[in-house]
Each structure stands twice: as structure tokens, then as C-alpha cells.
């Protein structure tokens, strides 16, 4: 999937993956896609809830070798 920006939040514990994702989203335009990589297991539920509250859309998410990846389309 084509992402405008890739954000590496691997190895970071909660709350940093969300803090960084939020910052990353501020740097892209509406309709652009941010790709986020994280290893904190709690990131999945939190990112989903956070995206929902901001109206952003999680287009896809995967989990491979302990790395969670998300593609988030900015509202």
C-alpha cells in the first residue's frame, strides 16, 4: 500500500506510539496515508480507538514477527 510517510515506533512503550502517530498525522495532508510500525501490543486497540475518535480511517493492519503495521488515512 502506498504511504505518504512511514513512522517507526518499534521498541517504544505506551504512550509513545500514539504520541508519535499524532505528530506524524499533523505533518501530512487530509487524504494522505501514514504507515506506522510498532511493537507495543497495546498499540492496536489504542490506535484503533484514537483513529476512530479523530475520524481517521485505518485502511489495513498486519502483524508479522511481532511487528504491528498500520496504514492510516488522515481525515
Amino acid at each position: 500500500m502506498e504511504a505518504t510517510k512511514v513512522l517507526d515506533a518499534k521498541g517504544l512503550a505506551c504512550p509513545m506510539p500514539i504520541v508519535k502517530t499524532k505528530k506524524g498525522m499533523n505533518e501530512i495532508n487530509s487524504g494522505d496515508v501514514l504507515e506506522v510500525h510498532a511493537t507495543d501490543k497495546g498499540a492496536k486497540n489504542d490506535l484503533t480507538a484514537w483513529a476512530k475518535s479523530g475520524g481517521h480511517e485505518i485502511l489495513e493492519n498486519t502483524e508479522e514477527d511481532g511487528v504491528l503495521k498500520f496504514w492510516i488515512k488522515k481525515a
Partner: peptide
């Protein structure tokens, strides 16, 4: 309850 991501 108020999720932390709403308080950033």
C-alpha cells in the same frame, strides 16, 4: 475514564 490520547 478519559483515554490518554484525548488529553495530548
Amino acid at each position: 475514564n478519559e483515554p490518554y490520547f484525548n488529553l495530548l
